[in-house]
Simulated assay, not measured.
Amino acid sequence: MLSAALLSAVKLVSALAVCAAVSTSPASRTQSEPPPSPKRRTVPRPVTSKATCVTTNDTLAGQPFGAELTAEELLQAGAKIVSRKLFANVHEKGQNDTILTLQHQGNQFEFYCMPEQRLLRRAVITNFRPGYGQRLRETLDASTRQSGGSCSKVQIRDTERTNNVSATFSEGKPAVARVEPYLD
């Protein structure tokens, strides 16, 4: 009889131990405690570049394509004439001049045409694959290096602020460049 009572007591103690263990288990705690708050994810910020880099350089602003581009060279390379606009020359009475607009491989050029010469008035470059586009890219890269790093926009001027080249960059490469030499 004593052994039966002892055996019952051992079973009772074992059952109480199991009940105590179950009541403090992690599964039972999560039911009574509020769920943990979600962790905030931090999104890495992109490396920012300078908004606009301005460089004063007579050579870069005055000759952004290296050698001066001519309308004849572009026409020989396959450029198409988009428009011709006649207007009176303000300096020479009775002389009519022309604004000649050319399109070459997605790039647009305007030339101021007088009887004795044709001068580049404006260029908008979006395709940097032709030779003149590659030379312009080199000019823009040189300007960026002079400014001390990456820029989202670049402006190159000469000391008199008459010749201007501006470009917008996308992923570190020029996307659009505008060349505006001085004309009177």
Rank of each mutant, 00 (worst) to 15 (best):
N57L: 01
Y112R: 03
A177V: 05
F87K: 03
P26F: 06
E160L: 04
A17C: 00
T55G: 08
K93W: 11
L2I: 00
V82S: 15
T48C: 11
E180K: 01
G131T: 03
E33W: 04
V18D: 09
T52A: 15
A177M: 07
F169V: 06
A27L: 14
A88N: 00
T159M: 13
V18F: 07
S28F: 08
D97A: 15
E68G: 05
P46V: 05
V54M: 01
S170M: 15
V43L: 10
A61V: 09
T101Q: 04
S150R: 06
K39I: 10
R122Q: 10
T139I: 13
L12W: 14
A20Y: 15
T101I: 10
A4N: 01
P35E: 10
P35T: 11
F87E: 09
P64L: 01
P174Q: 00
K11E: 08
E138S: 13
V43K: 08
T144K: 01
V18K: 02
V13W: 09
S28R: 14
R161L: 15
K39W: 13
G66N: 01
L16H: 14
L69S: 08
F109I: 04
A21C: 11
V47W: 00
L2F: 01
A15S: 15
G62E: 04
H104L: 03
S143Y: 00
R45F: 15
L102D: 08
S152M: 12
N89L: 12
A175K: 11
Y112P: 10
R29P: 07
A27W: 13
T139N: 11
R135P: 09
Y132C: 03
A15W: 11
T70P: 02
T144H: 00
D97R: 07
S14W: 10
S25F: 02
L86T: 06
V154P: 02
D158A: 02
S143L: 14
Q108F: 12
I156R: 03
I156L: 07
L102V: 07
N89Y: 10
Q105H: 05
V22F: 14
L102G: 04
E180N: 05
P64K: 01
L136C: 08
C113T: 14
V165H: 06
I99H: 04
A21K: 13
C53I: 00
A167C: 09
V179Y: 11
T144Q: 10
S49A: 15
P36R: 00
S37D: 13
L102I: 09
V165T: 03
L119F: 07
A175H: 14
V165M: 09
Q95Y: 03
T144W: 01
R161K: 12
F128S: 05
V47P: 11
T42N: 01
M114E: 15
S25W: 03
Q117E: 15
E68L: 10
T162R: 13
V154N: 08
L74K: 09
S147H: 13
A61S: 04
S14G: 05
H104C: 01
L12C: 13
S14Y: 02
R157K: 03
I125T: 06
